[in-house]
Design a protein around this nucleic acid. Sequence first.
DNA 1: TCACGTCAAGCAGAT
DNA 2: ATCTGCTTGACGTGA
Length: 298
Amino acid sequence: MKIGYPCINHTLTCQGSRTFRLKSYSVQNLIEKVENNLDCLQQILKYNLKHNILFFRMTSDLVPFASHPINRFDWQGFFKKKFRTVGQFIKKHDMRISMHPDQFTLINSLNRIIFQRSLKELHYHAEILDSMELNTSAKIQIHVGGVYNDKTKSIKRFIKRYKNIHDKIKRRLVIENDDRSYCLRDCLLLHEQTRIPIVFDVFHHSVNNAGEDLDESFALFTKTWRRKDGIPMVDYSHQKRGGQKGQHATTLNKRVFRNFLCQTKPYDFDIMLEIKDKEKSALEAIKIASGDERFKEL
DNA sequence: TCACGTCAAGCAGAT
DNA sequence: ATCTGCTTGACGTGA
């Protein structure tokens, strides 16, 4: 069991995920920003290592506009050494990495152009992880996509398109149950046809499910991961106190988290904490988990 | 230095 | 019709 947080670190002063406007695009600008982003990533990873945080979701903004037609720059070649160095650090310390392309990445879109754009975006994510020479336990997680008033058809469209996707993407792609359209049961249906592993989002499941309790859910989704995929991944969050239904919590509720660890005792998995205060909650979670025999110490 | 309009991209649900 | 959330606000112009 490893515990982590997504994308940015609020303790460090470095500004990660620095991007710029399309209007100010230039190769010079791109190089500058990528350099900054990679430096910042390195700082974050160092911080994480120091604090026993061995799971991290890298921002999709490492290379701004990488999948946009405006980009004709060979950033993979230019930054080859730097990506490799970061990757070596990750591997040396046995860290786990994931990425989460944003909501515009839709394999099952009705619009073929959106699908094509999404492939490019996925390709970009795969290139990042490949440049770091990480194995296939480093994953790219997406949601199933839109429903378009016909879930059955939309799932079928996903499966059909998935089958022709390049293996470079496929070997890293995992799907996550979401909070309104595709629940765990839908993802399992998709898994049967595609063998895609499922990232289980605890919070999404609590608001969108087909009646499975936590234990049943874990029994089901953990089976979708094979050895080469690494151990199963879980996105963890809970309801923001006093906030609107579905809003992510701003700080970790320790009692609820302790209870969650207790309820899932029979299973080993890595936890991505989707809590607004990021590394602060990760540190709390690690404190709580450190008594747990599943938890991985340095 | 700071305020604030705007930023590549889509969908669903709430208002 | 318009706004909001999504994994993360932050860029950059104009005063």
